[in-house]
C-alpha cells in the first residue's frame, strides 16, 4: 500500500534553526533564524527562495547543503531523513553551486585536482574511471579536456563559471542548490549561467533551489516560490500565480518595489 503513495524527491517539514547569543557572563538570548519551514520539491522543478536581506534564505540553503548543522524538523530525501544517509550517498543527492567563482575555487590547485577530489573522497572509482568521469563532465559543460592541467588563474570568467558548474555536477546530483551571487554577475554571464541551469534541468531532470531577489528573473525560471520574512515562511506556491495575484503584504511590497520608477522597459 505504501508503494502506491507518491514520494517526493525532497520534503522539508517544520524546519527550524535557533542560535544562542552569548554576551557577558550570564546573558543568553535565543535568536530564531528559521521557524516552521515546509515545502516539497519534485524532480525537474525549480524552487526560488526570496525575501528581504537577513530573512534566512542562505541559512536555509546551508542547512540543505549540510544537515550536520544542528536544526529542528526534518529534511527528507525520498522519504528518508537526509541525516541517516551515509555521507558519500548524501553528496550524490545535493550539491551546492557557488556562482561566486572567483572566491569559491582554490586558485592554487589545478583543474584536475579540483574536479577529482570529490570523486576520490566519496566514491570507490579507480584512477581510470575518475579520469573518464572528469573528461565526460568537462565535455558536458563545454570545456576542452586540455584545460585539466592548468591553474584556474589562467581561465577566463566564462570558463571559470563552467568550471564551477563542472565541480557541482561531477557527483551527478539530483538537487542543485544555487546561491544568490548569481545576481552579481554581469548581464551576459548571468544569462549564460541561467541557460546552463535550464539545460541541466532539461537533460538530467535536476531539481533546482535558487536564492534570487530579482522578480524578473524569478518570473522567467521559477516553478514554485517561497517567500521568507524574518525566518518565517510567508508565502509558498506556484510562482506565476503568486506574482500575478499577490495576497500577502510582503509579497506585494517586494513586487511593488521591483516595479519602481527607476526601471524602464523598451517599447516594442
Amino acid at each position: 500500500m505504501n508503494q502506491n503513495k507518491h514520494i517526493p524527491l525532497l520534503q522539508v517539514k517544520n524546519l527550524g534553526l535557533t542560535i544562542k547569543n552569548r554576551k557577558y557572563l550570564f546573558f543568553r538570548k535565543k535568536v530564531e533564524i528559521l521557524k516552521d519551514i515546509n515545502f516539497t520539491l519534485e524532480k525537474g522543478q525549480t524552487l526560488v527562495l526570496t525575501g528581504d536581506a537577513g530573512s534566512g534564505k542562505s541559512s536555509l540553503l546551508h542547512i540543505l547543503n549540510n544537515p550536520d548543522i544542528p536544526h529542528t524538523g526534518e529534511v527528507l530525501v525520498y522519504g528518508k531523513p537526509l541525516k541517516d544517509y551515509e555521507r558519500r550517498d548524501r553528496v550524490g543527492f545535493i550539491r551546492l553551486l557557488s556562482s561566486d567563482y572567483n572566491n569559491a575555487i582554490n586558485p592554487h590547485k589545478r583543474v584536475n585536482f579540483i574536479l577529482e577530489q570529490p570523486l576520490k573522497i566519496n566514491t570507490d572509482y579507480s584512477t581510470v574511471q575518475r579520469d573518464y568521469r572528469i573528461d565526460r563532465i568537462l565535455e558536458y559543460v563545454g570545456l576542452s579536456s586540455s584545460i585539466k592541467y592548468s591553474h584556474p588563474g589562467f581561465l577566463t570568467s566564462n570558463q571559470m563559471l563552467r568550471l564551477a558548474f563542472a565541480r557541482a555536477l561531477v557527483m551527478e546530483p539530483e538537487i542543485l542548490l544555487v546561491d544568490s551571487n548569481i545576481e552579481k554577475l554581469d548581464a551576459q554571464l548571468r544569462s549564460h549561467c541561467l541557460n546552463m541551469l535550464l539545460d541541466c534541468q532539461e537533460e538530467k531532470e535536476t531539481a533546482l533551489v535558487i536564492c534570487l531577489n530579482d522578480i524578473g528573473l524569478i518570473k522567467h525560471i521559477a516553478d514554485n516560490i517561497l517567500v521568507l520574512s524574518q525566518g518565517r515562511q510567508e508565502d509558498y506556491g506556484n510562482a506565476k500565480f503568486i506574482i500575478s495575484k499577490p495576497e500577502k503584504e510582503i509579497t506585494k511590497r517586494l513586487i511593488q518595489d521591483y516595479n519602481n520608477e527607476y526601471r524602464i522597459r523598451p517599447e516594442r
Binding site: 566564462n158 551576459q188 544569462s191 522567467h220 522597459r265 523598451p266
Partner: peptide, 25 residues
C-alpha cells in the same frame, strides 16, 4: 545586453533559453 534581461525581451517564454553572444570577451 538588452536581450540578456528576460523582461526586456517580449518574445521570451517561460524557461526559454536567453540569447547571449557566443564566446568570451
Amino acid at each position: 545586453m538588452i536581450n540578456a534581461i528576460p523582461e526586456f525581451n517580449r518574445q521570451v517564454k517561460l524557461k526559454m533559453k536567453l540569447d547571449v553572444l557566443k564566446g568570451d570577451p
